[in-house]
Amino acid sequence: MDSKTSKANRPAVITPRIPEDIIDEILDHLAADSDFKSLRACALLSRSWVPSSRRHLFHTVDLTWGKMDRWYNTFPVPEESPAHHVLVLHISNNAIDWVPVKFFDHAPRFTNVRKLFLFGGEHCAGPRVPSLWKLPESVTSLAISASNGASLVKIWEIVAQLPNLDDLSLQGRFIQADRSALLGIGTVPRGRFGGKLVLRNVYGAGRGHIEFLEILTGSPFSRVEIDYAREYIPAVIRLVEACSKTIVKLSLNVRYSGKYHSSSS
């Protein structure tokens, strides 16, 4: 009896516990200082710190096709992967290999991506986002860079998957698309397109550019940065005037096309 009483009267051992919001605050500071080494250490220190650490560690992810291998080997169970923490996703295909099939189970888990960057490598025919990979609808900003040519149809297929798109940036060489191919996907962009439009160093698709500009015409962009050969200026003017009520910043760089060089020399 005595022993029971003494146990009951014994003060409870209180494990010191730092409130979660304080932990988050500390981890936020580490992330602000880009101290990823400490963030990784925090993730290993306590199971309860893992989600907050991962939120910062996987904020931005750069996936080449080779790195996709590592992703699904590190996170064999897609449901337990930190893909939902990824807000900025870079996908570059400077490797020749195709997307690993196993990655298809992981791709739908990137549900919160806001900014998506697609880079086409030097030896590839444009950004290789496979048709089987449904892109996250959360994307509000899309940037595509194609150094060795990308089909405008392919680009438009990607754009058509993203209903919340505000910003669109294209750079590089694009391959001709005829109007019927583009019309097949739809003439009305699903995105909101209320943000920034950047068309920089875009070349190679001939009249396809005009078709592309015409499809974008009517979207309420607030910032427009366009670098184009001068024969497209009338189409650019139509596009810009169509968002005249919303546009805040306009930057135009007018250069010359190869066509004009050859005909004038």
């Binding site: 919303t246 546009i247 805040v248 910043k249 135009l252 007018v254």
Partner: peptide, 8 residues
């Protein structure tokens, strides 16, 4: 709403 114009 125009605030900035850059033309090159």
């Amino acid at each position: 709403k125009l605030e900035e114009v850059n033309i090159s």
